[in-house]
Design a protein around this nucleic acid. Structure first.
Lengths: 221, 221
DNA sequence: ATTTTAACTACGGAAATCCGTAAGGACATT
DNA sequence: AATGTCCTTACGGATTTCCGTAGTTAAAAT
């Protein structure tokens, strides 16, 4: 079983529940933090001390407060750790159940588990801890479909960039100019239009406002 | 102090934390439920038995599962209770911190407290329980401004209708035609354009996509 | 009753977008 | 080298939105 575990969640009461579960599973060495930055520091220190953590359980959204944070969100933390600590198992424990989100986390950052907070959340988390120890991916029931989605909606980074910029008020021409400046390959207004068209068909959106609205609902942006 | 309290939250671990706080405040008679419908039934039963609850602490979002619910969200529950049980004090305990949302709850349903889940959430909740017993409104620090916001006051149902329809993919002309059919007073394309213009200025939006995006982020729609 | 004020409406040109067509280039297959 | 495919880009007309001006109506104020 896991030797050294760290839990990151800014809600004290959640942390409490997770600790209880961890104890019931016989985990001895469990720490908890309320900020991603603290998690990062402790994990790095563990590496230096030759006593590395082998499991991180983290939420995705952390409230921001007076403390300036280098990694304000769980995803920021996961991104850096997936690079710097490939041996660390990461289980996400979040209220978020949007499939696109889960998909991205699993595929881009190689997390080993995703558990949705909910009525059965703690039970599922216990199961996730057990199953992931053998490097088996664990996903909550309600997000299991995130991966085997035949639809395999091929939404790439370019699409997401487009949608994000649009949602921030940029015009299509602005985006085109920005891409040209950055020397990013498809940059013409035509390409942008074509890409948006494809997305509108995929998501059955009537127009661009609708498209961005759907993308926000899906957690795509 | 409150005589009979009920807590509605679908996350077991949260419920646990809230119970701990309730106990530390000396509340003796505390029940907890994981579904809004259960809360409603218990509250109504309390009235029939002449032993009514005098405080409800509830979350806003409840995960939906196999159980069909009459009141799927905390807001649904609050709406019906604010009509049927005006003497019941209601404190919302939610992760949600969008001011528009808070504002609507306080003004439309007359809730007595709003506490944001967060690092200090349980402490604030304790304070809320103490202060609201004397019918004083309690709002978490981060949403205190929800009420004295002037800009918020200038957004009426028509604006919200407009933004919702836009986010659902309707064109401005479609909306105009729909309003004409429904005999709703401002219905011309001109009026719609003018109204959107006002909103864009208020929210400093570059264009309509941006505006709808902001409205979604604010919880306005 | 008259004036003032505010809101709704109409209109037209400018700008942005939508949408179809087609030319050009990169790349793999044969 | 020739062919086909995919992607990028360009262009032009249709539609929608943007934005300023101005006319109309309705209610409020005096």
């Amino acid at each position: 079983m896991y030797k050294k575990v760290i839990i990151a969640d800014d809600l004290g009461s959640i942390n409490l529940g997770v600790l209880t579960i961890a104890n019931s599973l016989g985990l001895k060495n469990v720490e908890r933090v309320e900020y991603c930055d603290d998690a990062y520091l402790k994990i790095k220190k563990g590496l230096l001390d030759k006593e590395p953590f082998d499991l991180l359980i983290t939420d995705l959204s952390f409230k921001s407060d007076h403390r300036e944070q280098k990694y304000p969100s769980g995803e920021d933390l996961i991104r850096i750790l997936s690079n710097e600590c490939p041996d660390l198992n990461i289980i996400v424990y979040s209220i978020e159940d949007r499939l696109q989100r889960v998909r991205r986390l699993v595929e881009s950052y190689n997390i080993i588990g995703y558990v949705c907070k909910g009525r059965k959340g703690l039970d599922e988390l216990a199961q996730a801890i057990r199953e992931t120890y053998n490097s088996n991916l664990y996903l909550s029931e309600q997000v299991k479909q995130a991966l085997n989605q035949k639809t395999a909606l091929e939404i790439d980074d370019f699409d997401v960039l487009l949608l994000k910029d649009l949602s921030k008020g940029k015009s299509q021409e602005d985006i085109s100019l920005k891409l040209k400046r950055k020397k990013i390959s498809p940059s013409s207004l035509s390409s942008i239009e074509k890409r948006l068209n494809k997305l509108k068909i995929q998501f059955q959106a009537n127009n661009t406002i609708h498209l961005v609205s759907i993308a926000k609902d899906l957690g795509l942006i």
